[in-house]
Nucleic acid binder design. Structure first.
Length: 841
RNA sequence: GCGGCGGUGGCGGAACGGUAGACGCGGGGGCCUCAAAAGCCCCUGUCCGAAAGGGCGUGUGGGUUCGACUCCCACCCGCCGCACCA
């Protein structure tokens, strides 16, 4: 017998060439066009399916996390194809962004060139991994043919009032010299990209009005199949609070100050009023009072604090009286006004009513400043145990209870009922109304950087702000020499580019020099894939109808808030503008876990980086892909182990060798004849057939629930059975079992499985429908009956599948070890689970 | 503090309320070989026992059930998100 050696270095490029030459994974948009597969079925009857992994950010070489994402996505894409769907599975690059630009500043290589080099590396590796990509739809967000439409979308939002410019206190990274979105600043006030401490600056910036969509972004989470923890993160981020807006009037200045509160039921307990240091009226209020200087100093101090210092809830409360009072609308009381940094300008109205008896923060402020504390809610159960941290009077008391000492209309009511009654009263009196508040802020998209999509706006001396007309798009990014940030966009130095004429009056004008946040680019790329080469429009609505929404989206949890929220916002906004007819971009989401090494994140500084290229070179892409899916559930973190990789490599080698040896005996045997030829099988042949159909059934179910690890384990079991019975079964039975194993493993190890399938059957596995389990072979006529006494397994006996319950009971009672444990005791009850067990009590 | 997820052998991990530990790694033993590599075969939760067999075992404590890793209640620990959000 010839020597058979599994050689992925020979097998993998050979099949990659077939797929590239034949453009196997391309799908046309027109359903009527000719294609592969079952020609007897009309194209229009074939369901379409859109499987998409988050597009990579091309920086350097792909890392192991990319290998995992695309291994997961490719398995899903292949499985859906084999189930008969036309699958759209495209690829692109999120090619604008800070890292390429920072690299350029360091090395002098133009971001365009370093990005292109990285893209080439990604392309090479994706091919070497054998990922089934429709390359005809490839895109990169830095190409003018793409960002022309990013600019068009910006202008659509602008025209709809969803993109606007305003001066704002913004987060500024002094190192990257750019403004950041709230989402790009971590809890301690560090820049997400470079770690520098972020500063606050007043600048005129572009925003997208995502807050208009807060309610829908929240509500529509119920319509999509996403992991619960991702939905939770989005809910937290949107941060919806229900309450009321109540107006407090400062009589001395004649100004109304609305506040947002979730506890209007405690209004009668308000004993003072606090404004955020950033509140625009703070200085005006203090003006002319004896506190003017103190307020001025305090505000300056507060504004210079870092978020870290200011955000610390443990810190003692500080503040300064404003020397003014406001009127509590429910009882006409004059209460003193303060400025204090525990009140945030970004949330609510930047001012609060303080109810120290029923709010922990107000309580500690009142204690520090000797302010009155007035209880207005009594515990419903006076014996209830006190809240931790409460004083001898049980304050602050933040739970529910009974209204007391408020007003005769409300006293004695449950506070939740009183809440509604008080809001209704405020509304009637014109002093307030029910209100909902969100934590979500508008999306700041301006970046004072070079390597991004230019904002298509022109500032004219006489016409003001003028959008660039659609026919002049794209506003191309000019070539510049120096991209070093200097506090303004590097584009501002490109005088020829900046100076232009007004599209409206033809007069002198200047271009907007900020670029857009890269998250804008990636908020609509999934739409562009549907019609990637359309030069006349961002997409043809018919193309979107065919594919959108994405049926299965795959990516890391790190994008749970930013990218996924922005893409949802774009989809809703574009739908409102009549460009889309669906509300959610990603019907189902799968978030894959991280790949770690020795339990910690891979990083260059730790020197524990496993490069996909070196693994592929050593053991082949099939092994690498199978291992990464076999090591554990793909939605969980997985630790990389070279020993584990070798184990999977041995498995693929055994599978391939046994197949090659078997093919030598049988020659290629078409699968279509198999079912019939195995009809009368018995003995070991029947056992192997049964195991094969068990594997089909098991793996089909596993793939539906993304349990790739157990699916691969089942193929291993099938191979073990093949090895065990290889000399006892007909060669044709073995051939059938092995070709089925290859067919089932194909979504994970496409090259070696194509090879095996061809050796054994002469056919192409990806053109075959997914195998169907034969129900008759899943049932055994004889099985091992588990015999329990008092719920403990005591014996096992052979039972036939058609035995009735009485027979099974008799069998169990007769089992030797059961008799030993019965020991003449009385039988109280017997439970029979046919096909499984008998339990004697 | 609020919310989400998780806790099973030496390790990664399997288990529609029905044989806990599939599959793989690691470990032990054997075959093949002059030897090695590769490959193949057997054993491998733990304790008692020569064996048959038995005791104990899924973070802790209760509960439901003939039967609980699985369901319910209370708690402990770990990871993730949010958090002076009024």
């Amino acid at each position: 017998m010839a020597e058979h050696r599994y050689d992925p270095q020979e097998i993998e490029p050979r099949w990659q060439k077939v797929w590239a030459d034949e453009r196997t994974w391309e799908v046309a948009n027109e359903r009527s066009s000719e294609g592969r597969g079952d020609s007897r079925r009309a194209r229009s009857e074939i369901p379409s399916s859109y499987v998409l992994e988050m597009l990579p950010y091309p920086s350097g070489e792909p890392h192991i996390g990319h290998l995992k994402t695309y291994s997961v996505g490719d398995a899903m894409a292949h499985f859906r194809r084999r189930l008969g769907a036309r699958v759209l599975h495209p690829m692109g690059y999120d090619a604008f962004g800070l890292p390429a630009e920072n690299q350029a500043i360091k090395t002098g290589v133009h971001p365009r060139d370093s990005t292109a080099a990285s893209i080439a590396s990604f392309q090479r590796q994706f091919r070497s991994w054998g990922i089934s990509i429709d390359w005809s739809r490839e895109l990169a967000t830095n190409e003018p043919s793409y960002y022309r439409w990013t600019q068009w979308i910006f202008l659509e939002l602008y025209r709809a009032g969803l993109a606007y410019r305003k001066e704002a206190a913004v987060k500024w990274c002094p190192k990257d010299q750019t403004v950041l979105a709230n989402e790009q600043v971590d809890a301690e006030g560090h820049c997400e990209r470079c770690g520098a401490v972020v500063e606050v600056k007043q600048l005129v910036q572009w925003f997208f009005r995502i807050t208009d969509y807060a309610e829908r972004l929240l509500g529509d989470l119920d319509t999509i199949e996403w992991p619960e923890h991702v939905k939770t993160m989005q809910r937290n981020w949107i941060g919806r609070s229900v309450g009321a807006e109540v107006t407090f009037r400062c009589e001395e200045l004649g100004v109304d100050y609305p506040v947002f509160t979730t506890r209007p039921d405690t209004l009668f307990g308000a004993t003072f009023f606090v404004m955020a240091p950033e509140h625009p009226d703070v200085m005006r209020l203090a003006q002319g009072t004896s506190n003017e200087q103190a307020v001025h100093d305090y505000v300056n101090h507060a504004l210079n604090e870092t978020n870290e210092e200011r955000g610390n809830a443990e810190k003692p409360k500080t503040g300064v009286p404003l020397g003014r009072t406001v009127t509590n609308p429910v009882n006409g009381e004059q209460i003193p006004m303060y400025v204090a940094d525990y009140v945030l300008m970004e949330y609510g109205t930047g001012a609060i009513m303080a109810v120290p008896a029923h709010d922990e923060r107000d309580y500690s402020f009142a204690r520090a400043f000797q302010l009155p504390i007035r209880r207005v809610i009594a515990p419903a159960d006076p014996d209830a145990k006190q809240q931790p941290g409460a004083d001898e009077e049980g304050l602050p008391y933040t739970s529910d209870g009974v209204i007391a000492g408020s007003h005769r209309d409300f006293d004695g009511m449950n506070n939740r009922e009183a809440l509604a009654a008080i809001v209704a009263w405020l509304d009637r009196e014109g002093k307030g109304h029910a209100s909902v508040n969100y934590r979500l802020r508008d999306w700041l998209i301006s970046r004072q950087r070079y390597w991004g999509c230019p904002i298509p706006i022109i500032y004219c001396e006489s016409c003001g702000m003028v959008p660039v007309p659609d026919e002049q798009l794209p506003v191309e990014l000019p070539d510049i020499e120096d991209y070093t940030p200097k506090g303004r966009s590097p584009l501002a130095a490109a005088e020829d580019w900046v100076n232009t004429t007004c599209p409206s009056c033809g007069g002198k004008a200047r271009r907007e020099t900020d670029t857009m946040d890269t998250f804008v680019d990636s908020s609509w790329y999934f739409l562009r894939y549907c019609d990637a080469s359309n030069e006349r429009a961002a997409w043809d609505p018919a193309a979107l109808r065919e594919w959108m929404p994405v049926d299965q989206y795959i990516g890391g949890v790190e994008h749970a808030i930013l990218h996924l929220m922005y893409a949802r916002f774009f989809t809703k906004a574009l739908a409102d503008l009549g460009h889309l007819d669906f509300q959610e971009p990603f019907q189902a989401l799968f978030t894959q876990g991280m790949v770690t090494k020795d339990g910690s994140k891979m990083s260059k500084s730790k020197g524990n980086v496993v490069s996909p290229a070196s693994i592929v070179e050593r053991v082949g892409a099939d092994t690498a892909r199978c291992y990464i899916l076999f090591v554990g559930p793909p939605d969980q973190d997985a630790d990389w182990s070279d020993d584990g990789v070798d184990g999977v490599h041995r498995f693929l080698g055994r599978l391939w060798r046994l197949a090659a040896e078997t093919a030598e005996k049988t020659g290629p045997t078409s699968t279509t004849t198999d079912q019939a030829s195995h009809a009368g099988a018995e003995g070991p042949d029947l056992d192997l057939l049964r195991k094969t159909h068990w594997a089909i059934d098991k793996i089909s179910g596993d793939l539906r629930r993304f349990a790739f690890n157990t699916a691969i384990a089942a193929v291993m079991e099938l191979l073990n059975e093949c090895s065990k019975l290889r000399d006892q079964v007909e060669a044709s039975t073995l051939s059938f079992a092995l070709s089925t194993a290859a067919s089932l493993l194909f979504p994970f190890a496409p090259h070696v499985c194509s090879d095996i399938y061809e050796l054994l059957t002469g056919e192409r596995v990806w053109e075959q429908p997914w195998p169907q389990a034969d129900e008759a072979l899943l049932e055994r006529e004889v099985y091992e009956l588990v015999c329990q006494v008092n719920g403990k397994v005591r014996d096992r006996v052979q039972a036939s599948a058609d035995s009735d319950q009485e027979t099974l009971k008799d069998l169990c009672r007769a089992a030797p070890n059961v008799r030993a444990h019965m020991d003449g005791k009385e039988i109280v009850k017997e439970i029979v689970v046919p096909g499984k067990l008998v339990n004697i009590v």
